[in-house]
């Protein structure tokens, strides 16, 4: 069974309607956007559909867009039988970074969501143990957000203007 991209898009659009948008294929990987209310139903549909069988959550991460004050949570799911990958993006506002957890579908989302929370402060609602994973527990900042400096900005012993740090 080989999935035809057009059929998959048509099927998803007929099932979820306007909840899905911005279908594109950068570098051959089907990408679309959805909203935080639809993300779990979409993942569930893709997971449980017997033809598509997107049973494998490859990756969860976030991207920060300070200009629009948004965070994008990016899911990569994969159907091993069909050898097909999909990227799903959900844009959530920086001021209210909440999204339902995918751990109800995939165990592998557990630490990946903790990592995303740790670095971007995305709150995965319903996650059993949403605590920091790689950074120290008493850290207050979310260090991968763009406004967080790479190094202590008060340092005066380093001048790396030319190397653009």
């Amino acid at each position: 069974m080989v999935i035809a991209t057009e059929n998959l898009i048509a099927d998803l659009q007929s099932t979820f309607g306007t909840a899905l948008s911005n279908f594109e294929e950068p570098y051959g990987l089907l990408t679309f956007q959805t909203n935080k209310d639809s993300i779990i139903p979409v993942l569930k549909y893709l997971n449980e559909n017997e033809t598509y069988r997107f049973r494998f959550l490859t990756d969860v991460c976030a991207v920060h867009y300070p200009t629009t004050k948004e965070l994008a949570v990016v899911y990569h799911v994969q159907s091993m039988e069909n050898n097909f990958r999909i990227r799903i993006k959900v844009f959530i506002p920086e001021s209210n970074p909440k999204i339902p957890t995918a751990t109800v579908l995939y165990e592998s989302a557990n630490w990946q969501e903790r990592e995303t929370y740790d670095f971007y402060g995305v709150i995965f609602e319903g996650h059993q143990n949403l605590v920091r994973i790689l950074n120290v527990d008493d850290m207050v900042a979310f260090p991968m957000r763009k406004e967080h400096p790479l190094e202590d900005p008060n340092r005066i012993d380093k001048n790396d203007t030319y190397f653009g740090r």
Partner: peptide, 15 residues
């Protein structure tokens, strides 16, 4: 418990 040798590669890579 992990993170003992976290070196923030993703952050460094952005710079």
């Amino acid at each position: 418990t992990i993170g003992y040798i976290h070196r923030a590669f993703e952050k460094i890579a952005e710079h």
